[in-house]
């Protein structure tokens, strides 16, 4: 008995320490990014100013004066919001159909959807650029960014929603059928209220994925539809001379999403660990 107690006491102290260390390791790059954003570009690369420097807001003031942070930020908000909404608009009925009216091929369809995520994005970069620029004329438009963000996230959206919907007892939907609800009514009056938590965490995660997406948003936009990812990209210099500026831009780009995530922690944890317990 004594041994067991000692051991669990040790565990009570040791595990939180380990957790803190791991958390700090993960947090450190973010901390360093914010820290560096208060240095001048010159200070940022000098080892003697690693910790001792005069903090400045110069990088942030430059940001709004020189390259219009707000335009990029608004583009990010617009594209991420609409991409998320469209993904849900398609994903909820799709997942509903597969969860409550499965056919023999439902599993195959789900796998096929997931397999689209295995395609290397670089493989279709040239056709995408060529088509959107020369044929469709939608290069660097909100429309294009929204469609692309929506499509690349759709498989995950459907998988997540499918998993949530599967947990709703089939009989409740059947009771709805007996009560004479239309298909749309089943979704609106029964499914959505019951799966609200799952839909919200799916939406939140999708929004974050859209916000952070860089590969396509950087390559399919120039100015009009450019998002914050593009802003960061634009401040990247191969010589690494503008670390202070780059850090400030990056901090400003991730700040909204970090704050959003902070407020929705509970939903996020539920979303990220879905299906893990059952």
């Amino acid at each position: 008995m004594a041994a067991v107690t000692e051991r669990s006491n040790f565990g009570k102290i040791a595990w939180p320490i380990v957790a803190w260390i791991v958390a700090l390791i993960f947090f450190f790059p973010i901390f360093w990014l914010v820290f560096t954003s208060f240095k001048t570009d010159a200070d940022a690369v000098k080892p003697e100013h690693l910790f001792r420097f005069t903090p400045t807001l110069e990088n942030y003031t430059n940001m709004t004066q020189n390259y219009d942070y707000w335009r990029f930020a608004i583009n990010s908000v617009i594209t991420s919001t609409f991409a998320t909404l469209f993904a849900l608009f398609v994903g909820v009925p799709a997942a509903y159909a597969m969860a409550f009216n499965p056919s023999r091929h439902t599993k195959d369809i789900l796998m096929w959807m997931l397999s689209t995520k295995m395609l290397p994005a670089a493989a279709v970069l040239y056709p995408m650029t060529f088509l959107t620029k020369n044929f469709l004329g939608i290069f660097d438009t909100h429309f294009l960014v929204i469609v692309v963000l929506c499509l690349i996230n759709l498989p995950i959206v459907i998988w997540m929603l499918f998993t949530y919907f599967k947990e709703i007892p089939k009989e409740i939907i059947e009771a709805g059928k007996m009560d004479g609800v239309s298909t749309w009514g089943e979704i609106k009056d029964i499914l959505i209220p019951l799966a609200w938590g799952g839909i919200a965490s799916t939406a939140l995660l999708t929004f974050i994925f859209c916000w952070n997406e860089a590969y396509w948003t950087v390559r399919l936009t120039t100015i009009d539809a450019a998002t914050l990812s593009k802003l960061i990209e634009g401040n990247r210099a191969p010589e690494g001379l503008f670390f202070g500026r780059l850090s400030a831009v990056s901090t400003a780009a991730i700040a909204p999403i970090v704050i959003l995530g902070w407020f929705c922690q509970k939903q996020l944890v539920q979303g990220l660990t879905f299906g893990a317990v059952k």
Partner: peptide, 30 residues
């Protein structure tokens, strides 16, 4: 004929009540 138009009503083993509605709304829904 659709389930709701057959003039039948069903009581399920798992009750299958709508958890997000009150007792009154559950009964009034149909």
């Amino acid at each position: 004929v659709a389930a709701s138009k057959r003039g039948v009503a069903m009581v399920f083993q798992t009750y299958a009540l709508y958890p997000h509605m009150t007792v009154y709304k559950n009964m009034a829904f149909g």
